[in-house]
Design a protein around this nucleic acid. Structure first.
Lengths: 173, 173
DNA sequence: CTTAGTGCAAAGCGTTTGCATGCGA
DNA sequence: TCGCATGCAAACGCTTTGCACTAAG
């Protein structure tokens, strides 16, 4: 590590550039939030971020966390996801991966397929400029499939394959 | 129209099958909600559905609307979308289309590309069974691009193309 | 006759808003 | 100094929950 910048430095630069460009202030809170996101680098909610910040001693109010996430989405450093559980989930600007989401247990796995992704990215649309895309694959993970098979009693009556026996995901709310 | 079933009949059959299969009751409310969804066939929220039901004289409580949407998602007739505005939006099981979402004005356009879709659907994943997928393309529509260009004053200072001047979407909430 | 499902209203909770204060420019 | 951004707390709105009642099986 010498000429190579750290991940955090790079992120800071992008944020700084955006703040200058849009004439907004470079407050410590904004960088603290960004650092925290970079540290946990995974999916996060506004609230989990808030907790994590508090836990590490960096006091940032929940309102500011929301403001900053919004800001980071604007400048492209963060994206919002929908995993079908009704909650808002964010992620540090993902680079070439998409998600397999089990509609039964809610587990999320990241996968990547450069070929597929560049194919999607290569498409052009009349009167629309693509900035990014989000691909989510919904289905059943092997674990749940096994569990369902074990529990099944009234199956094979009619169509629709592989349906969880009662209620699927919906964790929070 | 003779041997050919109406769209609604087909939907009813799928729902009926699912209810029988999972041993749940076939209540009029459930079919009313399904019909209403089929009628408006577009994106809808729990609340818009509720209003539309009320407007057409079919009294179904909001709670039941939520319950039924949940049920319809379970059985695959309805899917949930994330258009980045934080609200929950549903849609009658879409068949081969995906969405272009303008992050500036929030407008959504449906497009389809059979080739791309079958490519995505053809992929196989170890220990995961795909049931459906959701592809969202985020970007700037031509209208907003034009508007931004007109309003721009402090642009071309640093990276990131085409950023709306202040705050993007976030309609509700 | 049983009990899942409904309606209604209250509770819950993630998110937004308003206002006084603080701090970057 | 000026005014954007923060902190705090109240307000908001979508969603869920609890309970009594209705009706499907």
């Amino acid at each position: 590590m010498n000429t190579e910048k750290s991940k955090n430095e790079e992120l800071h630069e992008v944020l700084t550039a955006y703040l200058l460009r849009t004439r907004r202030r470079r407050t410590p809170e904004r960088y603290m939030v960004l650092d925290c996101i970079a540290d946990c680098d995974a999916h996060f909610s506004a609230d989990s971020l808030f907790s994590q910040l508090a836990a590490s001693g960096r006091r940032v109010s929940l309102g500011t966390v929301y403001n900053t996430i919004e800001l980071l989405i604007e400048c492209g450093l963060v994206v919002e996801h929908n995993f079908g559980d009704g909650g808002r989930v964010f992620e540090l600007a993902p680079t070439g991966h998409y998600h397999l989401i089990c509609t039964c247990c809610g587990k999320i796995k990241e996968v990547s397929d450069g070929q597929l992704e560049s194919l999607i990215a290569a498409k052009h649309y009349p009167s629309f400029t693509m900035r990014r895309f989000s691909l989510s694959i919904y289905g059943i993970c092997s674990r749940c499939a096994r569990k369902n098979k074990a529990t099944k009693k009234t199956d094979k009556i009619l169509s629709t394959p592989n349906i969880p026996d009662k209620k699927p995901i919906r964790n929070k709310k």
